[in-house]
Structures are given as C-alpha cells and as structure tokens.
Simulated scan of single mutants.
Amino acid sequence: MAYKVVIPQDITGAGKDYLREKGYEVVVGSGKTDLGTLKAEVADADALLVRTAPYPAEVIDAAPRLKAIGRHGVGVDNIDVAHCTKKGIWVTFAPESNANSVAEHAMGLIFALAHNIVYMDGQTRAGNWEIRNKVKGSDLAGKVLGIVGVGRIGSLLGEKAAFGVKMKVIGYDPFIPPDKYPEYVAPVDSIEEVFKTSDYISLHLPSNEQTKGLVNLSLLSLMKRSACLVNCARGEVLAEEDLYKVLAEGAIKGAALDVFCQEPCPYDNPLFTLKNIIVSPHNAALTQESMNRMGLHAAMGIHSALSGEKPQWAVNMVE
C-alpha cells in the first residue's frame, strides 16, 4: 500500500506532481489551521508537507503513522522539532528554495524607501504633481547597508546591493567567523555598530529565544535620523511598539516590514497609521518560482525520509 502524504495547506503543482510520480497517495487538506481540524486531517498520514500552520506535540501525536514532516520553506518555529526527534520523525526544510526571492524583496523595499516610491504613488494619484519639487529621494550608491544575519538571504542581499547598486555593505552575525563572510560584506564587531553606522539596515535573523525582541528601543535609538530599517526575517525579532515610537517621533526616516509579531496582522496595527512605513503581508518568499521550489524541495525531503535515507536538508537527526 502506498504511503500517504497529507498537505494540510495547499501548494503549487511541482511538489504534488513529484510525490505522485514517486507513487505516493497525496491528500490536500482544507487549508484550515485550527488544531482540531489539523488533528483530524493528519490522523492517517505517513508524512506531512506543511506550510505555516502550527504543529505542536498534540497534532504530531494525532498521526501515529507519521514518519516525516517536510517544511514548505525555511522557518521551522511552527513545528515541535524536539518532539518529532523524540518520536523518530524526520523534519526537513527547504533552505535553498526562497533565499533569492526574499533578498529581491528586501532590495525592492530598500529602493522604495530611498526613492519614496509608495508615497509618491499616492501623491501622484491624488493630483499632487508639485510634490516632485518638495520631496526628494536619495541615491543608494555609496550608502551603507548593514545586514544583521549574514546567512543565505543576507549574503544574497549584500551581493545585489554591492554589485548592483554600489552600496557599501557591512554585516554582523555572531555565528559566522569573519573570514567566512562573502568578500563584498565587511564584518563589524557588534550589532550596535551596524545600527550606528548604516543608512539602511536589513534584518535576516531566525526567531528563537535569543533573538525575540532583540531589535528594541536601545538599538533603534542608535540609528541615524536619516536611516531606514527593513525586516523580512521574523516579526518576533523586532519590538513593534519601539519601532512605532521612533517612526512617529521622526527619530528615523522610515521602515519596511514584510513580517509582524502577530500574523495575520490585525488591520488596526498602530504602525499602519504612519506614512513613513511600507508593509507587505509576509509574501517576500511567495514568488511563483519560489513557491514551486519550496514545494518540490519539501517533497524531495519526504521522499528521502520515507525511502530510508537521510534527507539532504534535515533539520533533526533520527536514529
């Protein structure tokens, strides 16, 4: 009998086609993310291909045949990985699937902040042609981009900024030795130096106990009044109330967020009342090409696990 792979939240065709070609039974769920629905839908799954819904121990325990979870994307903070490891369940992710897409989105937000693109769009539609003589943008060439987290996405952003726009790129990452940084990213000694020095700061950190609320008023207060902050990482790493304070007071020029502390983000988030912030609905990674890669790479991880092999992109180690 074929293994059953359940996909609670639907994905593009690439991953589903791969699994079916390998002989698996593929079942797509309702897309609902409440725990009761998830427990019912995963009950007879041999593997799960998951997106953003929560997978705590009680959902994992509701699937007694479960052998593997393939994460559609990079972050696994929605999965109880420790519980999976204890139960001998592989968890895989797709680290090479969306890095360029997120880096492009971050670069686009930096362009939009520098050239006031969103603000000018609104003013032009309102008939304010004279705004062109009152509000000026800023060139990016020669400006300093500070990257916090010089992993796959941070490195790709640095490459685009350094070679495509001629920005000076500095970076801080406590987990990467300075001699391992890309040649186009100059390492600095502290996160404080990034915030003091940079004209644009882009966050590329995972969400964990060490990073939650890391970027707070103490760091934001170090920024130049002309500087801007971009977050395409995880909402939890940034204290939104502190960001609101510095934006509302004009202590920094602007910000752009693709991620929020609460998602979906409530429509009455105070940040939405400000004109010096650009927002997007955590869609940096959701290009068509990236969605195809995320589904395919998650499916490949599941196939390796169910075939008795160690997955290429394993998050945990199963005996």
Rank of each mutant, 00 (worst) to 15 (best):
M107C: 03
I79R: 10
N292V: 01
G250Y: 11
L229H: 00
G295V: 13
M294I: 01
G73H: 07
A298L: 13
S198F: 01
S218Y: 01
P174Y: 07
L243V: 06
V42E: 15
Q9M: 07
Q312S: 05
P95E: 14
S202V: 06
W90I: 09
G254C: 07
R132K: 15
N116K: 15
L243Y: 05
P54G: 06
S190W: 12
A284P: 06
K166G: 00
L243Q: 10
P182V: 08
V135L: 13
I252A: 12
L222P: 08
P56R: 10
P56Y: 07
I110T: 14
Y55K: 01
T124W: 15
N98M: 03
R225H: 06
A68Y: 06
R225P: 04
R125Y: 01
T12I: 05
C84Y: 10
V188Q: 07
A63Q: 08
G301M: 10
K4Y: 12
I153G: 04
I89R: 12
N316I: 08
E241L: 04
L140H: 15
G75Y: 03
N316V: 04
G70L: 14
E241C: 03
M1C: 04
L49P: 00
H303S: 14
L238C: 02
Q312M: 09
V315W: 08
F272V: 09
L222F: 02
G301A: 10
S155I: 10
A227D: 12
L296W: 09
K32A: 15
V76Y: 12
M120W: 08
F260L: 04
F260Y: 14
P178Q: 11
G122V: 12
R51N: 09
A43W: 04
Q210V: 02
E193S: 08
E41Q: 14
H72S: 04
K39N: 10
M107W: 08
D268I: 11
A141G: 06
E263V: 07
Y267A: 15
E96T: 03
G127T: 12
F111K: 02
A114T: 07
D10T: 13
E263H: 00
V237A: 04
G158R: 11
V5H: 09
S307K: 08
N208A: 14
